[in-house]
Structure formats: C-alpha cells, structure tokens
C-alpha cells in the first residue's frame, strides 16, 4: 500500500520573482522596524523618567519634572473621565443612528446617509475643537448648572464654590470642564462608531430577519432578538474603538480644557486634564528630564489605547458577525 502523503514540492522562482519578493519583504521589514522603533524608543526614553520616580509615577498628581516631582495620576484620571463622558454621549447616538440607517431609513436614503456618516468621520478634529470652544463652551452652561443643581449630591456632578440657586453667579466655573471636552470628543468619535455598528448590523442574515418577521415579530422585536444579538460584537468593538480614539484625542481637548494637575473628579467644574493635552502643552520644555517624563506619559497613554484596541478587535473577531471591521 502506498503511503498517501503529499509530495514535497520544490518551488523554483525566477529572477524577477526573487527581486519582487525581496522588495516587498524589505517593505514589510521597514515598516516593522519603524513601528518597533517608535515603541522601543518611547519605552527607552520613558524608562529614564520612570527610573527616577519609580512607582510614584502612577500616584503623583503634580507635573514638575525639573523638581523631580511628576506623575500621571491626575492626567490619566482626567483622560479616562473625558473618554467616559465621550462614550456616554456617543454610544446612544451611534447605536440609534446605525439602527436607523440599517432598519428604519427609507431605502433610497440609506446610501446617502452612509456617505454622510463616513464623511463626518473624516472631518478634522480641529474643526470640532473650534465648535466646542466658540459655541458649546457658552451654550452648555445652563445644562451644567441644571445638572449640578439637581444632581450635585452625586459626587461626580458636584461643583465647588458656587451657589447654583444664585442666578447672578459667575458662569466661568462651568466652562472648560471635563464635561464639555467629553461632549465634543464624543460627537467627534460618533461617526466612526456609527459606521462600524452599521456595517455589522447590515450583515445580519436576511433569513433570520425574515424568520422573525414571519413569526409575527414587530420590527423592534426583530431588532432586539435578531439584529442586536448578531451585532453585539460590533456594538462592543465599535464602542471600544471609539474609546481608543477618544483617549488619544489632543487638539479638541487642548482647545477646550484649562489644564489642572490635581485629580479633578467633578466633571462639570472648570479645570480638567488629559495626557495628550499635557504633551501638547509642555513639549516645549527642552530639558531632557521633562521630555522623558512626557515620553513616559505618552507611553502610558499608548499602552491604554493599545489595550482598548486589542480588546476591541478580540471582541469583534470572536463575535458571530466576525472580523467585519
């Protein structure tokens, strides 16, 4: 009896192919080298700063690298708070809009709406920053005041040194806050999140949709029992991707917040902080230690976005809808 294993094939490549494979291999390797270089350079320079302050880097709130006193406790908390506000804004908006586009909108309108959403995802962040600074900063004050007045007993919504019942009180205490920055960033990332969710929802098997409808389900029952379970991975993955973008957003945040270097848990109150805005603010400090400290902060931010992004791609890849995005 013959052993039925595949024969070993020898591939003889001609000269052109060898050159071609060499070129693309070189391209791939160059990209790898650049990317690894960025990461390892960041890590190397950051390690100088980390060696100096050790674990205090994660607990210290102040940012005075030249006095050897710096840490990311304040800025990281600020970044996370801004990103959380952003997600609270963008998740309902994105979920509603993507469902509207895939399930409710008239068929003729669908393609147009998809284009609009994709176009909005390409709008530069500085444009949103302009809008946030010149419009929302003032327009949002009554809302902030109202929330602090009625929900001020929840610590997050408290505002210090102000009497919300006094109509003549200064409003500057409500400006440049985490809340405003979060709303602007949230609106900025919503188109991206929407576009991912829409893509996943639109891949729901038509047979299952029709099956639900044929069993007498209303449109909402069909969405809840077929579309949403199918698109679960897309919802989580898209939201996490938006979260990653929100964490790394610089310029819109930088234009709106007035930076503080203490942990500011009151999201409605003037004063906020974010890692990216810190880097934009302080990169001009040319002392090597100051730069290393910024590198360390940048590395911490990068690690965070990396974890969020990988989490997102894992969730999406494991879900039924598969690696759609």
């Amino acid at each position: 009896m013959l052993d039925d294993t595949p024969r070993k094939l020898t591939i003889i490549r001609d000269g052109g192919d060898k050159i071609f494979r060499g070129i693309i291999r070189a391209g791939g390797s160059t990209v790898l080298v650049i990317m690894v270089l960025v990461g390892s350079f960041l890590a190397y320079r950051a390690s100088e700063a980390l060696n100096k302050v050790g674990f205090n880097f994660f607990t210290e709130q102040a940012w005075e690298p030249d006095q050897g006193k710096f840490g990311i406790a304040a800025v990281i908390v600020g970044t996370i708070l801004i990103a959380l506000v952003a997600i609270c804004v963008s998740l309902p908006l994105a979920l509603g809009t993507s469902l509207f586009i895939t399930e409710f909108a008239p068929r003729q309108l669908r393609g147009f709406l998809v284009s609009i959403v994709d176009l909005m995802a390409a709008i530069p962040s500085v444009v949103f920053g302009l809008w946030g600074f010149f419009f929302l900063q003032q327009a949002i004050v009554p809302v902030s005041r109202w929330i602090s007045q009625y929900f001020g007993w929840i610590p997050v919504f408290a505002v210090d040194n102000v009497d919300p019942t006094d109509p003549l009180a200064t409003t500057t205490v409500y400006t440049s806050s985490t809340f405003i920055a979060g709303i602007v960033v949230g609106i900025m990332v919503t188109p991206i999140v929407t576009s991912i969710m829409r893509e996943v929802f639109s891949q729901t098997p038509i047979g299952e949709r029709e099956g639900a409808l044929a069993l007498g389900a209303t449109r909402w029952a069909m969405i809840r029992n077929v579309v949403l379970p199918f698109g679960q991975g897309g919802i989580i993955g898209g939201t996490m991707l938006g979260l990653g973008r929100a964490l790394g957003e610089t310029i819109a945040v930088y234009m709106i917040i007035s930076p503080v270097f203490v942990i500011q848990p009151h999201i409605l109150q003037n004063g906020a902080s974010s890692v990216a805005a810190l880097i934009a603010l302080r990169y001009g400090e040319s002392t090597p230690m100051g730069l290393s400290a910024l590198m360390a902060a940048g590395l911490a931010l990068f690690t965070m976005t990396l974890i969020v992004n990988f989490g997102a791609s894992m969730v999406v890849a494991r879900s039924r809808s598969g690696a759609a995005s």
Binding site: G39, R45, G248, I279, G298, N309
Partner: peptide, 18 residues
C-alpha cells in the same frame, strides 16, 4: 501594524520631535 493604529497622533509627533 494593528497595534500601531492605536498610536495617538500626539505621541507620533512627540517621537519625531525627540
């Protein structure tokens, strides 16, 4: 490459600056 899509743009700027 997939990991690097998470690189915040300001950190890319900081890298070139440094």
């Amino acid at each position: 490459v997939e990991a690097m899509t998470a690189l915040p743009s300001i950190v890319a700027g900081l890298f070139i600056f440094a």
